[in-house]
């Protein structure tokens, strides 16, 4: 109980910053920094004042927010699944590892935004572009980390499997994947941030809907509060994705932290 109270007390800085922001921007009448109350009001009006039947989402939100989220989730999850499968498969063969590692390292080093112009000439504007961009951005770090993780599975784990005649399928699902999972998660953590970047960027450049597109429109119309609502939404999205991911990781990798502590 006491720890909860003290934890909340240590959040004092958030209200302090908000109040300071409100007061100073009102006093200075800053054009590009509307007070938080203004942003909040606009946030409600623009995105969340819809009918209860639509979970209070406005048409605007349904039109811009949902497609962004859908593409983000589908693109990220699909790319991760394929990249993990491919990485683990390659990682179990020393030859394939050696052959493909330099190529994967290279693709991992290409800043993925650079390819958006070329993707655009192939896919045109819209969902296919966003998906391609997200998939390309996410794949390489996840592939590289899965490959590394599967490659350096402790030899004794595998020998134990051999001694006790553990079937190939179980060896993969119960031993190799868990042994590689700390590395795989390191790749996934990076990929969440990359997916967001690629989502926003591809909506800036080649889209007619989505949060990024809406944001750029607001910017060009000098509609500063609306632009800020998009910043806030993207911030919340980043925060929620990150927190959900960390929680999931903590759950899956409990053993890893426990085993490391006692080493």
């Amino acid at each position: 109980m006491k720890t909860i109270v003290s934890r909340i007390a240590w959040l004092w800085i958030l209200p302090v910053v908000l109040v300071a922001w409100e007061v100073s921007t009102r006093a200075a009448q800053a054009v590009y920094f509307p007070p938080p109350s203004v942003i909040l009001a606009r946030l409600h009006e623009l995105w969340f004042s819809g009918p209860a039947a639509h979970v209070f989402l406005t048409d605007e939100a349904a039109h811009h927010l949902l497609p962004s989220l859908g593409r983000l989730v589908v693109g990220w999850a699909g790319a991760c699944l394929v990249a993990i499968a491919a990485g683990v498969a390659l990682g179990r063969s020393a030859v394939l590892c050696d052959v493909f590692s330099p190529l994967i390292h290279f693709f991992r080093s290409v800043p993925p935004p650079l390819l958006i112009p070329i993707f655009m000439t192939m896919t045109g504007i819209g969902t296919p572009l966003q998906l391609t961009a997200i998939v390309f951005g996410v794949s390489w770090p996840v592939l590289l980390n899965s490959l590394d993780g599967a490659r350096y599975v402790d030899r004794q784990y595998l020998e134990t499997c051999e001694v006790f005649g553990i079937s190939r399928f179980r060896r993969l699902t119960r031993v190799i994947l868990p042994a590689a999972s700390p590395k795989i998660f390191a790749g996934l953590r990076i990929s969440v941030a990359l997916a967001l970047i690629m989502m926003i960027l591809s909506e800036f450049i080649g889209s007619t809907e989505g949060i990024g597109y809406r944001m750029l429109v607001a910017q060009s119309e000098l509609d500063v509060p609306t632009m800020w609502t998009a910043i806030v939404l993207l911030g919340i999205l980043g925060f929620v994705l990150n927190a959900a991911f960390l929680r999931f990781e903590r759950h899956v990798l409990t053993w890893h932290r426990g085993a490391r502590k006692t080493d």
Binding site: L14, L196, M215, L216, A230, N242
Partner: peptide, 13 residues
């Protein structure tokens, strides 16, 4: 709170 904000969200600003 600030860290997860994608940097590109701040680009228009």
């Amino acid at each position: 709170f600030l860290r997860p904000i994608p940097s590109l969200a701040l680009l228009p600003l």
